[in-house]
């Protein structure tokens, strides 16, 4: 895209898709903004009238909002931490020339292909079930009291499930990054007397800085909207303990039938996501410069 001609050509050729994407985005956004200013409850059809910002005031002052905001941040932060740390470890492991490496890699990647609803069901009924779950069986065979995961540590259970789903993604990205690390650099470090830990700390980790930021960026976008796992397992409870913003909006719209309130919540979520994204882009931008 260096000459003027190619730039103009580029614009002309991208115009249709940019236009389509713009319409695709702007129509729902405009409608959401419109709905968010109405008193619009599905239980009382025909009574929609304009109420200004009242829906926002209602949503933001709702104690459930702060609780779910906190849950969202805890969920996103914990999953990011777990997947990046473990993902680096897994990537380092499956980068080693071990026996059956290809099969191991395939198995590591497998969870990513399982639908969130399915994996949540598997975790709920086969692994974490307090009576018939695998964890309960392990606990009882060791003579311990089985944990009722979703009652005793609901948010942690959700974090566990979501982390399990996103670990392959992080591992995969970091593995490809590891494979692009120049072998001679590691050998130079070896000649310089760096031990395994120093090599990791001074050579490998700086090399991974960029892919890690990419993992964080992409995962955050999806983790802000985790829904299926919560819906299938805890339904946001007990109380509000596992309700995140996405689930709160859902419950507003389809449990309380309050379309106006849900629209306002959706817009708040958009603003939140943009704030987070702004921070991330700053961070990534700084890292991508190198």
């Amino acid at each position: 895209m260096s000459t003027r001609q190619t730039r103009v050509l580029g614009r002309v050729l991208t115009a249709p898709s940019v236009g389509l994407l713009f319409v695709w985005m702007i129509v729902p956004l405009a409608m959401t903004i419109y709905f968010s200013t109405l008193r619009y409850n599905l239980l009382n059809p025909g009574t929609e009238d304009f109420i200004g910002l009242e829906n926002y005031v209602y949503f933001l002052t709702d104690p459930a909002f702060l609780a779910s905001l906190r849950n969202t941040l805890v969920l996103v932060g914990s999953v990011l931490l777990i997947t990046v740390v473990l993902g680096t470890g897994v990537a380092l492991l499956i980068d080693q020339p071990i026996f059956g490496r290809n099969i191991v890699r395939l198995l590591v990647i497998a969870p990513f292909f399982v639908m969130p609803t399915v994996s949540a069901l598997v975790w709920k009924n086969l692994l974490m079930h307090p009576v018939s779950g695998l964890f309960a069986w392990i606990a009882t065979s060791l003579g311990l009291r089985p944990i009722d995961w979703f009652a005793e540590m609901p948010l942690f259970s959700i974090i566990l499930i979501v982390s399990w789903q996103w670990l392959p993604f992080a591992s995969l990205i970091l593995l490809t990054a590891l494979q692009s690390l120049d072998e001679e650099q590691k050998e130079a470090a070896e000649m310089d007397g760096a031990k395994a830990f120093s090599t990791f700390f001074y050579i490998t980790l700086p090399h991974l800085a960029r892919p890690i930021t990419v993992v964080i960026l992409i995962e955050t976008i999806f983790l802000l909207t985790v829904f299926a796992e919560i819906f299938v397992t805890t339904g946001g409870g007990p109380g509000l303990q596992t309700t995140n913003i996405a689930f709160l909006i859902y419950s507003q719209a389809l449990i309380q039938y309050d379309v106006g309130g849900a629209s306002a919540g959706g817009l708040v979520a958009v603003v939140l996501a943009n704030i987070v994204a702004m921070f991330l882009v700053r961070m990534v931008g700084k890292n991508l410069e190198t």
Binding site: E184, E187, A188, A189, M191, G193, P206
Partner: peptide, 27 residues
């Protein structure tokens, strides 16, 4: 390798990209 008292110059130079020249030489 590090204990043999030899140092090596690689064909690709194998410099550490995120370290300054000072850091590279002093590593």
């Amino acid at each position: 390798p590090a204990k043999r008292g030899l140092s090596m110059v690689f064909q690709s130079y194998a410099l550490y990209p995120h370290m300054s020249v000072r850091g590279n030489i002093g590593f």
